[in-house]
Design a protein around this nucleic acid. Structure first.
Length: 242
DNA sequence: TACTTATATCTGACGTACGA
DNA sequence: TCGTACGTCAGATATAAGTA
């Protein structure tokens, strides 16, 4: 067995340990309702119907993300996940969450729909703002994106070091994406019905991840011992219930 | 090689809602 | 009334790609 395959298996065995801790493996919507998350960390999303090829009983990771990777950042893990989940009323803002942008674009492609304003600019374009039909179309897609992401289950590790591009969070995120993508030749490919297969982005279709950055990076397998110690710390420091 | 542009992703400020 | 959390949105930052 190659070091790469061993690395992927070790990664998933660490997640299996993590998944038995309180607050882990819940649907994102439930997690946000029930638990107070640590201030900073790395998160891993799983999606219904997606399993490992080599171990079909194990759910595969479909997105890895983090936050507070700029010096001085005050952003929090819960806030970042909240941006991905959307609002309590079912809405959301895909211009503040790249994850929402990708999911919405794939939904449009899968259903043969067109919404030209989707993903355009970092704010609502004036032509949409003044057009009730376009506004309603965006709101409807945001609602569908919220429903889809809200059903995803989430694992997370607390990584409390100082914000910055050299933080442990950035290190874990980068190498996890590189490991699972394997330069667009993932060990665990997506199922034939995976929504990401309809993404306009080749990186998403080929990596089987809702990520673009780092999918073609070289993986440093030395990140696994670091992740293991973070999993241990996260399990010892249980999240508070709301 | 240096500069410009595009892209991906996260940040921060501000307004609002809500509970103590 | 005040503090906190949430939602929105414009912008910042890092990196990659393109071009002269």
């Amino acid at each position: 067995m190659s070091a790469f395959v061993q690395g992927v298996d070790r990664f998933y065995s660490l997640l299996a340990r993590l998944s038995t801790a309180p607050g882990q493996g819940l649907r994102l919507r439930q997690l946000k309702e029930r638990f107070v998350l640590p201030r900073r960390g790395v998160y891993f999303f799983m999606e219904s119907g997606e399993f490992r090829v080599t171990h079909p009983e194990i759910r595969r990771i479909v997105r890895i993300g983090t936050h507070a990777v700029s010096a001085g950042s005050k952003s929090l893990l819960g806030a970042r996940l909240g941006a991905h989940l959307g609002t309590r009323t079912g809405g959301g803002n895909h211009r503040g969450s790249i994850f929402r942008l990708h999911v919405g674009a794939a939904l449009l492609a899968r259903d043969g729909l067109s919404l030209p304003s989707w993903g355009v600019g970092s704010a609502l374009p004036p032509q949409v703002r003044g057009n009730p039909v376009a506004l309603a179309a965006e709101a409807e897609l945001e609602r569908r994106v919220s429903a889809h992401i809200g059903e995803m289950t989430v694992l997370w590790v607390a990584v409390p070091d100082e914000p910055g591009p050299l933080s442990m969070r950035a290190y874990i995120e980068r190498n996890t994406i590189a490991l699972l993508s394997n330069k667009l030749a993932p060990l665990d490919v997506s199922s034939s019905g995976w929504l990401g297969r309809f993404s306009p982005r080749a990186e998403i279709r080929h990596s089987a991840l809702w990520n673009l950055r780092h999918v073609q990076d070289e993986c440093d397998l030395q990140f696994l011992p670091t992740l293991e110690s973070l999993v241990t710390l996260t399990r010892e420091d249980e999240p508070r219930s709301k």
